[in-house]
């Protein structure tokens, strides 16, 4: 019963945080609310006996990834955007209608289906008997899931190389997104000074 209560609390916080993320105009506020949401999700992982994932959620997501975001947010001067319109004018209303309807549909489907367990036997008790969540998960990761694991490392490597390439400063004179439109051209040095 206590678990259910905790789940409701975590879930409510997570949803509230998420709503905050998409409504705040200040990016830094949004970022902090996102961290808050992730921590609550980590709490739900904990409730589900996924200890390792809960830790990873906080370390990698709330830690590494969001720190990266914070770094870039600070790197760029974003204050000027706060004065601008934050929402699409027409699209806003489409979304206000569409998102609740989608949500209702998903909830309808999810609740209409009777979920039954496959029952593979890895109950929390069994896992605890075998040495705990981290140990069993690790064992599976390095045996059954070894190939995907290696591929994941490759994806990270490619992501890293790609990020470096994309973010590297070009040393051209002026950069035109649309080559035919001269007004669109921006001198690189000018941007660099600003960035």
């Amino acid at each position: 019963m206590a678990e259910k209560l905790l789940f409701i609390v975590f879930a409510a916080f997570a949803v509230a945080g998420a709503l905050g993320v998409i409504t705040r105009s200040n990016v830094v506020h949004g970022l902090i609310l996102l961290v808050f949401t992730f921590i609550n999700v980590a709490g739900i992982f904990l409730l589900t006996q996924a200890h390792f994932l809960a830790v990873i959620q906080i370390l990698v997501y709330a830690g590494a990834i969001l720190v990266l975001f914070a770094f870039v947010v600070m790197f760029l001067n974003l204050r000027e955007f706060q004065q601008e319109e934050q929402f699409h004018r027409g699209q806003k209303w489409a979304v206000v209608v569409l998102a609740p309807v989608m949500l209702a549909e998903i909830v309808f489907v999810v609740t209409a289906v009777t979920w039954s367990s496959v029952g593979d036997g890895f109950t929390p008790e069994a896992i605890a008997a075998q040495g705990g969540n981290v140990m069993v998960l690790g064992e599976q990761l390095f045996t059954k899931m070894l190939l995907p694991f290696e591929i994941a490392s490759l994806i990270l490597l490619v992501g890293m190389v790609g990020a470096i390439l994309l973010a590297a400063k070009e040393d051209g004179e002026s950069v035109c997104l649309r080559e035919w439109d001269d007004d669109d051209c921006v001198s690189a040095s000018l941007v660099e000074r600003e960035v």
Binding site: L98, V101, M102, E105, I106, V109
Partner: peptide, 10 residues
């Protein structure tokens, strides 16, 4: 895209 998804799910 989402409209399409909505139509399919409906």
């Amino acid at each position: 895209m989402f409209v399409g998804l909505f139509v399919i799910v409906t």
